[in-house]
């Protein structure tokens, strides 16, 4: 059980050496991200604004079908109560 957690010194060294080699392996275009920090900043601001608009719009979106249903129910009741006078 104890052995499972223990690494020999040469194993530790080999892992550390390997990882330092991994860290030094070159990657393509290490310094050239496609978007600048400025673009990312404004993109974040735009996304924040859209989200704020969505949050503000949400009660209106919810109310719209409720208004339509309420209007139809009111029209139906009005017609029902008016029927005796119309006939």
């Amino acid at each position: 059980m104890t052995d499972w957690f223990v690494f020999r010194d040469d194993e530790e060294r080999a892992i550390a050496t390997f990882m330092s080699r991994v860290a030094n392996v070159r990657i393509p275009d290490p310094e050239s991200p496609t978007l600048s920090s400025n673009t990312l900043w404004w993109k974040a601001k735009l996304l924040d604004r859209w989200e704020a608009e969505r949050r503000a719009q949400w009660p209106l979106d919810i109310m719209q079908p409720i208004e339509i249903v309420g209007g139809l129910v009111a029209a139906g009741l009005l017609l029902y109560w008016s029927l005796p006078y119309l006939l």
Partner: peptide, 8 residues
């Protein structure tokens, strides 16, 4: 990820 964060 673990090895990178720990060693690098």
């Amino acid at each position: 990820a673990l090895l990178w964060l720990a060693y690098v």
